[in-house]
Nucleic acid binder design. Structure first.
Lengths: 355, 355
DNA sequence: CTGAAAGCGCTTACAG
DNA sequence: CTGAAAGCGCTTACAG
């Protein structure tokens, strides 16, 4: 056997003419449009039309191709179609966080609306730190989305600049600015602060304080709060800034600190309903009755709070409406319609307490 | 002027030799890898390596290319790289809803973890209806994700079959089954029902009822609840099934209905904490004291409930841990590591009431 | 109404 | 350590 010479016939599959060695790239990974086309007896472009412009295809051709698609279980590759057509059908949603969050309702409605229009949502969680925002934006832009939803107005100038330059539709939400990157659906945190101050002033509050995170939006509320109070001659505002994520526990811990600064404290504006509930708990423990001795106002109008803590005032923002409006702005723009760029959806101070 | 004959020179840009009319496709849409390559004096493949395997590039080449990338603001096109490499770097998360939801924490942690590993999350909201799940799966698969997170086990056989066939890593979460599609991180809703029944039995409850949605997981809890009670000789269980989304208002409305069925009702197992809070409110209005006359158990352990409604019992599930574990399962699989396929993360019945 | 050719912007698979 | 060629699976831009 070792002496057996190989014959020509023993060399398997020896190509007659050394073909240019077609380099296969890992073999077939799944069904392609050409598989459908071959089986349906049409050109690939016709299969493409069945998906993208069925009205341009003859009814019987349409039917035949669809049957093959169904039979084979073919699903088009949107990486390929996106690359080829420059239409990714992707929308990016950049959100600080969706857990226990005011924003989750906005994203929910936004996503439902975009998906009904044939888009899919890429979720990008930015956290509350600006540190990695450049990297996040790179990651987002690398998918070539057709539009971007931002929760809050973009913070850094570099980010705003880049988003402006890419030229894609951008909606900023949950905030207000005179110089949006593109479109905006939101409300003024500064005005909210002023409205809460107004509310406290009507209650004859004398020593209001504030407990809040120190992100841009929270600080805008603070500034509005302070300015309105200053107009009314209330100048000294005790203040405790807390780190996110806000929670009931954080609120509980903050009240004693605030009381050290202002022993006569008779009102607190909290950055969120969770903080407000914590403050309420701490107040009870300290024997302070709410709202008669201490008025507490939260922010966010979470459903739980409405039912279980009627002593609290809060500020309601319609997150679902923001999501819907933002989606519509983007969709209008994507279909070439020009709409009003800035949408102020407003807010409501909700008093539930019955003094 | 009307008589002026056009001269050859007046015909602008007439090509000498009619070249094969190179068809431009809309012109340049942005920077490409070739732009970076040209400016850095390297081949495109080298720029590709700078992004994908920098350790294989000479240090000074690396530096030079990176400078050009920085200067130009080049962001690679992941539609193209995904198509070419069959690695989309995309993970799909299929969730019924993220608003006011138990799942939002899971998705939050899952997304953070995947993003740290270089993946991005495509959010797919399935709603609570199975109707459009096939279309949703088509949309998801069209992006060629490298893995899929499912919230709950997939419902229809056809869906399970398709997911099994595509051969990509799949993690089912928030539930338990003997026949997962692939991997699973969850707990048994049936056992939760039994545990709540056990809890009620220890309280000498005699006429327990149930208020819940009628999705698969809720029904599994109900069955576990009933079976354990039946073992203890409690056979008649009043029941009200409500439509999602669950809310406080729905809970409020359901209690009177339940009381019609069972006038002696002394315990209610609710499908969510929101329902439980609604039932608590309704009970107060009816003059029933909780928990002495009526024990109420929720599900989900929302933070608000913990602080504001200590009369309620609830069932706690660690959504963050589910998200983290699910992400790790997927990442292990994607890097070729085989891990345990089924992870039972368990749950806790949280009694807060102090009778 | 349908199709052949070229191109979208990358990476694979070699080769040096 | 670097590069030329070919290919990923679609769609555009024509042409008929």
């Amino acid at each position: 056997m070792p002496n057996q010479k190989p014959t020509a016939a023993a060399i398997p599959d020896a190509p007659e003419l050394a073909a240019p060695a077609k380099r296969l790239r890992g073999g077939p990974k799944g069904l392609r449009i050409t598989d459908v086309a071959a089986l349906a007896g049409v050109a690939p472009i016709t299969v493409s039309r069945v998906f993208n412009s069925p009205e341009t295809v003859a009814p019987d051709t349409l039917e035949r191709v669809r049957q093959v698609v169904q039979k084979l279980g073919y699903v088009p590759n949107r990486l390929a179609s996106g690359l080829s057509s420059s239409r990714s059908r992707l929308i990016a949603a950049i959100v600080p966080t969706i857990a226990h969050s005011l924003f989750s309702e906005t994203i929910q409605v936004f996503s439902e609306t975009m998906s009904r229009a044939g888009y899919q949502v890429l979720l990008a969680l930015s956290g509350y730190s600006d540190s990695s925002e450049e990297a996040l934006l790179d990651a987002v832009l690398s998918r070539r989305p057709e539009g971007v939803l931002l929760t809050g107005i973009a913070h850094t100038d570099s980010l705003r600049e880049r988003l402006r330059n890419v030229g894609m539709p951008v909606v900023e939400t949950w905030d207000m600015t005179a110089t949006p990157i593109d479109m905006l659906v939101g409300f003024s945190h500064h005005e909210i602060g002023a409205a809460v101050a107004e509310h406290f002033l009507q209650r004859k509050v004398r020593a209001p304080g504030l407990i809040s995170a120190n992100d841009d939006r929270a600080l805008a509320r603070r500034d509005g709060f302070r300015e309105r109070l200053a107009q009314a001659g209330v100048g000294e505002i005790a203040e405790v800034l807390v780190l996110p994520p806000s929670s009931i526990a954080v609120g509980k811990a903050a009240l004693p600190t605030l009381l050290e600064q202002a022993p006569n404290l008779d009102a607190v504006f909290c950055g969120s309903d969770l903080l407000a509930i914590g403050v309420l708990g701490a107040a009870k423990r300290l024997g302070l009755s709410v709202p008669s001795q201490l008025s507490i106002c939260g922010f966010g109008d979470l459903e739980y709070a409405t039912e279980t803590t009627p002593q609290l005032t809060t500020v309601r923002v319609d997150g679902a409406r923001i999501g819907l409006t933002a989606a519509r702005c983007l969709l209008d723009r994507l279909s070439g319609v020009e709409k009003s760029k800035v949408n102020n959806v407003g807010f409501h101070v909700v008093e539930r307490e019955t003094t």
